[in-house]
Amino acid sequence: MKLPQKKSLLLVWGMLAAAALLPVLSSNDYYLGLGINLSQYVLMATAWAVFSGPTRYVSLASVAFYGIGAYAVAVVGDALPLPVVFLIAVAAGSLLALLVGLATLRLSGTYFVIFTFGLAELVRQLFTWYEVNITKTVGRYIFLEVTPRQIYWELLALLALLFALSWWIQRSRLGLALRVIGEDEMVARHIGIDVTRSKLVLFVVSSAFITLTGAIMAPRWTYIDPAISFNAVISFQVVIMALLGGAGSLFGPVAGAIPLSLLFEFLSARFPNHFSILLGAAFMVIVYFVPNGVAAALSAWWRRRGKAAA
């Protein structure tokens, strides 16, 4: 089991390097756009699994953080340098995650799903209310001098950072704590693990990355309003991708996000009116046929093959 882990690590670093070269090798805008779309979903699915994989809490709040990232850029983007804007976005997203985590991580998993879904809707409604009643606008324009190439590279850099961080967490004391929590919370408590705090740290880290993804993506939208930035479909897509790939392993979500972003891109272009239905169908098929994700299915197959060869 050690070998595939190491190999997949090399494979992913290789893929990241190759992906970074794409805009240099081709000046085709369509491919660059596709690359951006893929990268943002790979990022969000991986970040989602950083928290939900070990804790098995399903969060439907991804889009709340994504949208907050986008709005941070829309609100202060032209007044401040971009790195500062990103820091503000991360601070806002982390703060929300901290508050939500403190309020909910003692709840059981079922309540958590419902709460996070409600949270995303609440945030959307608050933004809508604020824009309509206070700023008297519906949406906002984002005119920033950021090229698609730059966005693409920023996304890849963030992804590299996320992989490095998750890899480090896995090796740390926190990583061991999470594995124990994932298997048996009662044991975790009685050996001195602060279960709530461990979950909270992960939730904040995961949410910060999703917020930053939204912030990086914002200039690409040009125009945003709460219905676009806080569209619940995004949260569902992230969950499906991570589950298809397998939220239990670091690179599982990558394996789910790549094919599904392509599929969703195709479906939303071809069947814009039936997209939600097809999304729901995809969800059911995945949960039914690959309940533990592609990564787990592959590693089971790898083990069987190993046994057969021995």
């Binding site: 061991l176 704590a177 594995r179 298997e183 048996d184 009662m186 044991v187 009685h190 050996i191 001195g192």
Partner: peptide, 30 residues
């Protein structure tokens, strides 16, 4: 637990996917 109270369970509870060594390390680490 951190103050020094340890316990076993009537129906044994060990994280099954962790190796024996990791199980014991988890008792040391926290």
């Amino acid at each position: 637990a951190r103050k020094g109270m340890a316990r076993s369970f009537q129906l044994v509870r060990v994280p099954c996917e962790l190796s024996c060594l990791e199980n014991v390390i988890s008792g040391l680490a926290f």
